[in-house]
Simulated scan of single mutants.
Amino acid sequence: MNRAYIPGIIAMAAIVVASNILVQFLFGNWLTWGAFTYPLAFLVTDIMNRVYGAQAARRVVLAGFVVGVICSLIGTQITGEFGPLVTLRIAVGSAIAFLTAQLLDVAIFSALRNGAWWRAPLASTIIGSTVDTALFFTIAFSAGLTFLEPGNDVSWAGEVLPLLGVGPMAPLWVSLAVADWGVKLALALIALIPFRALTARLAPAS
């Protein structure tokens, strides 16, 4: 493996581990602290893609996926107040969402890489983040997928409440998903600053 990829792999692994830990701690009514660290995975992927190409980005994604699976396996063995910290549905949802969204990010970035410098990272992150949120929350909490883990009671997530406390009535998990998605969109814009700075610094001299 190219040694130049190692910092990206370490950064991705650190983000995945930190997010798996911080997701246990609430931030307000709709978010966890992990919502603020996880979106940085898209920043790492995009920087690797811009500087080293799609193959390097996919290797970093694969490393993050493996670390995420390990974190989920560890989480299933730790019992909290309401049972295992990581249920099967959360583990499956997290794995599928991460791999699908990150690989989609790589593909979209690659297709747009020759345009304006901001277009590829912004479009790939927004679309990837949207897919990530939709897949994870649907798989982990939707009542329609109870068959994935019949013994896991997620009825609490289906409680119908005003969306984000002020909008139309919707299942609680939809509010959680919308809040998470909003943070991802905000960070997609903010991340353009470090993306521009770091790619300029890491780009090989011509």
Rank of each mutant, 00 (worst) to 15 (best):
G64R: 12
A203N: 11
A179C: 08
A91M: 15
A188L: 05
A91L: 14
A54H: 07
A91I: 07
Q24I: 08
V178C: 11
W181H: 02
A197D: 00
P168I: 12
A13L: 03
I78T: 08
G93W: 00
I47P: 02
L62W: 14
M1T: 06
P39M: 04
L135Y: 02
A14T: 05
V60N: 08
P162W: 02
D132R: 05
F109N: 08
F141C: 00
F27R: 03
L163P: 01
P7V: 02
S129L: 04
T37R: 10
R58N: 14
W181D: 01
L22H: 03
W156H: 08
S72V: 08
A57Q: 07
G182E: 01
L192W: 09
A123V: 13
A143D: 11
T125Y: 04
A170G: 04
D105A: 12
A11M: 14
L148E: 00
R58W: 08
N29A: 15
Y52C: 06
A179Q: 10
A186F: 10
L22W: 04
N152W: 06
P194G: 02
V51C: 08
V67L: 05
T199K: 07
V160Q: 13
I190P: 02
S19W: 00
G53N: 03
A191H: 12
S94C: 00
A191R: 00
V131I: 14
L112H: 09
S155G: 06
V174M: 07
S94R: 09
A111I: 12
L103V: 04
L172M: 13
A197K: 14
N114H: 14
Y5S: 06
G34I: 07
L161T: 14
F109S: 03
A177M: 15
V69S: 11
I193K: 11
V67I: 15
S110I: 06
G151P: 03
S94P: 04
A157C: 13
I127D: 06
V178R: 09
V23T: 14
L88S: 11
V69D: 01
E159N: 13
M48T: 14
L26C: 07
L88E: 00
L73F: 11
A123S: 12
F25G: 04
L73Q: 09
V92W: 00
G80W: 03
N114Y: 10
L103K: 01
V154M: 14
L112M: 08
T76C: 13
F98R: 12
N49I: 11
D46Q: 05
F137T: 05
G165R: 05
G158C: 05
D46G: 10
A177K: 07
P204Q: 02
G93V: 07
T87A: 13
T130D: 00
I10V: 15
R119A: 12
L40G: 15
V61Q: 10
I10R: 07
L135N: 08
I21E: 06
L122M: 09
I90E: 06
A101F: 01
